[in-house]
Structure formats: C-alpha cells, structure tokens
C-alpha cells in the first residue's frame, strides 16, 4: 500500500532551537530503530491476541490507549511524543486543595 505523502518540512517544527539532523540523514540513522520498535509493538499485540481470553482485552482501557497512540503516530503533528505522553497521563485538576506554606 503506498504511503500517504506528508509535508514534514522544517517549518513544521517552529519550536526547534538547535539544528537537528537533515531529515534524510535522520531517516537513514533511525529507520532501523523505528522498524525494530514497530515490530516490538506488533509482536506485543500479537502476543496479547494469542492468549486465552483475548476478546476481553479489546475493551481494556490500556488497549484502547494503545490504539489511540497508533492513531497519533499516523498524524502529521510535530509533537507526537508529547501527545502520546499526554494520552497516557492522568487528568490534572486545577482546583486541587494545596497545603499551605508555614510562612
């Protein structure tokens, strides 16, 4: 299946403050790492699927999050790692009751 074309230019990364590797070199250097880790995720999903009671895990919130994380990987946003971190994070309540300093 052909991959969808994406516009991942430097302008997509306005927050970068240091010079990253040129994209082609980054792809050269990290392609095998990405391949290896995608295979790890695939193998983990296969492992879960092979086990007894696999059907029950489909609705497990952890599996739901893994699927949502894969959706993030397929997106174009430049901060995929940060988005996945937040996906796996608990909600913050700004109104939590703080202890007070003893001034």
């Amino acid at each position: 299946m052909p991959l969808k074309k994406r516009s991942l230019t430097r302008a997509t990364y306005p927050l970068a403050t240091m010079t990253p590797l040129p994209a082609a070199r980054a792809l050269d250097q990290y392609f095998l790492d990405a391949r290896s880790r995608l295979l790890d995720v695939a193998a983990i999903l296969d492992r879960v699927g092979r086990g007894g009671g696999a059907e029950a895990t489909v609705a497990d919130p952890r599996m739901t999050r893994i699927r949502a994380a894969i959706e993030i990987l397929l997106g174009d946003n430049p901060n995929r790692a940060e988005q996945i971190q937040k996906l796996f994070s608990l909600e913050y309540d700004a109104g939590w009751v703080r202890p007070q300093p003893r001034l």
Binding site: Q85, K86, F88, S89, L90, E91, Y92, D93, A94, W96, R98, P99, Q100, P101, L103
Partner: peptide, 21 residues
C-alpha cells in the same frame, strides 16, 4: 512516574508557585 507524571508535575509547580519563599 508514567501516568502520574503530568498531573504530579502540575501539582508540584502549583505548590512551588504558591510559596513566595
């Protein structure tokens, strides 16, 4: 760690900012 980090870091920053010292 892990799922507690974001919420906990926000809470920590809240406490630091709440203490004028």
């Amino acid at each position: 760690h892990l799922e507690d980090k974001y919420k906990g870091t926000r809470m920590i920053v809240d406490m630091l900012k709440n203490d004028p010292r």
